[in-house]
Amino acid sequence: MTLQQSNAAAMPRTGVFLRSQMRNIAPFATLILLIVFFSFASPSFATIDNAANILTQISVAGIMAVGLTFVILCGEIDLSVASVANATGIVVAFFTMQEAYVNIANVPLPGWLAIVLALASCLALGLVNAVGTTVVGIPSFIMTLAMMQIGAGICALLVRGQIAYAVPDLVNTLGAGRIYGFPTIGLVLIAFLVVGHVTLRYTRFGRYIFMVGGNREAAEYSGVNVKVVLGAALVICAVCSGVAGMLGVAHFGSAQQNEFDGYLLDAIAAVVVGGTSLFGGRGGIGNTIVGLCVLGVLNNGLDHIQIDSFLKILIRGLILLAALIVNVYVQNIRTVERAQGG
């Protein structure tokens, strides 16, 4: 869409074009730079195997990021993604027969039923987010902050400090299996990205997401049911998180409290580093892919060049800060231009 727009706006000057595309160019340039840097810095970085590694490493956060892209495009935020993922992962394990030594009062059910129940629970949590935000009118930031705690509470109650290991076979195949040596969880991520992209770009609902994020008032005055669109985005996000959580449990081989805590930041960072506007209306799955790659390459690359593992955290923080600066800066350019062109 951004490409269409810039063609349409018929801006002949390259400078103006580049500036208008900064949202897309900056993350991509960052990605190229990182790849070039790590390729030279470490011989083991630029290999096919490692590419598959990176894909696997970003999968869990990536599936969450797909849902989060919907929410952020609406100009809202969901802070409960990791927590909902954790809860869903634990629910699916809770309803699966565990080994005798696992000390959890679990309720063994057939695998498909466990999966359905897990999906239902993340759907329900997403609905609570949606109702709280749209019907009650709680800002999504606060609403999903509460949900973060609720999700953690559900996890705590179900596992009571224990660790569960077994998940239904289907979940295990998707989360930890390989097809011709290729990690299935990576394929699931690719499927989510494709479906997310198609939904956002080629369906009416997707158009509504962009319009609601671009100018919520105008969407409302055009007869778009803004509350339904926002609510749907939050539900989609929760379901994506739930799937990520189930596959994550299989991927890591265990279900326990606080398992996904780091993924909240990763998912948000992937969306924002990719250039999707925090104010809504601009960006998309394409941006999220680039953001995921930046994060994946960075995390993976820092492991390849022997670096203080504590410094890694700081570097990630700095990269995120830089992305935020670009994000807000690009937004300001637009606001100023609009005010002048008004």
Binding site: Q5, T203, R204, G206, R207, M211, S222, V224
Partner: peptide
């Protein structure tokens, strides 16, 4: 009522989108 960054046609179609497309744009 208008979306300044969007092309004219998306501005025009937003209020009738439900009629010209069910699922796919």
């Amino acid at each position: 009522m208008l979306f300044y960054e969007q092309p004219v046609y998306k501005n025009v179609s937003i209020s009738i989108l439900a009629r010209i497309s069910r699922l796919w744009l």
